[in-house]
Amino acid sequence: MTDTTAYFEFLCRMGDNTLVLGHRVSEWCGHAPILEEDIALANTALDMIGQTQMWLGLAGEVEGEGRSADDIAMLRDAWDFRNCLLCEQPNGDFGQTMMRQFLFDAWHLAMLTELQNSSEQRVAEIAAKAIKEVQYHVERSGDTVIALGDGTAQSHERMQKALNLLWPYVGELFTPDAVDTAMAEAGIAPDLTKLRVGFDTHIGQVLSEATLAIPDSNFAHQGGKSGFQHSEHLGHILTQMQWLQRAYPGASW
C-alpha cells in the first residue's frame, strides 16, 4: 500500500462515517417525537454532511483523478464505502438512534481532538472546524442518553436494549488495520488503541449516570472501514441516497 493510497483510504473513512450517519440521521426529518428533536436531528445531520464535503473533497484532491466530493459520495457502490459498521445501523426507535449517535460522537470527539495535531495541515484544519460542531453533538446525545436511560422503566429498558444491540459495533472504531497503522506512523492520525482509554472514561461516566450497564463482551464486528464486509443495511441506504444521480447522471438544479 502506497502512502497516498492509505491517506486516501483514511480520508474516505472519515468522510464516509459522517456521510452515512448524516444520511441516516436525516431520515428522521419530519418524523422525530417532538419538533425540537426533529430540528436538532436535522441540524446534526447537516453538520455531518458539511464535514463530509470537507473530508471527501480532500480525498478527491489526494487521489488526483479529478473526482469531487459529490462524485465520491454519489457514484461509488457499497464495496467502495469505508464507513464503520456502527454508522450504517438502522435508526430503530428514537432511543436507539440517540445511543448510536452518542457512541459515535464520543469516538468522533476523541478522534478530532487528536487530528487537530495532525502532521497534515489540511487534516488539522478540517478537524479544528468539525470539532466545534461535534462538541454540541456529544453534549446533546450524552444528555439524551442520560435522560432516557435514567427515565421511565420503559425508556430505561429501550436504552439498555439499544446499548446491547450497538455495543458489538464499537470495537471496530478502535481496532487498527494497515491503513490506521500507516496513518499513525506518518503522524497524520492517532493510534486508535490509545483513543480507547479516554473514550471508555467518557462513556463510562455518561452510561453510569444513565443507569445503563455496559455489556461484558468486547466482541466486535469488523469489515466496514476496510470495505470487506458491510452489513446489509448499507446497500439500502445507497439506493435512497444515490438514486437520483444514478438515474439522471450529472443532474443538478
Binding site: L46, E139, R140
Partner: peptide, 13 residues
C-alpha cells in the same frame, strides 16, 4: 434553554 439546536445551525432555542 429549550434545545441546543434551532432554526439554523448557528442558533439555539
Amino acid at each position: 434553554r429549550i434545545s441546543q439546536f434551532g432554526s439554523t445551525p448557528c442558533k439555539a432555542q
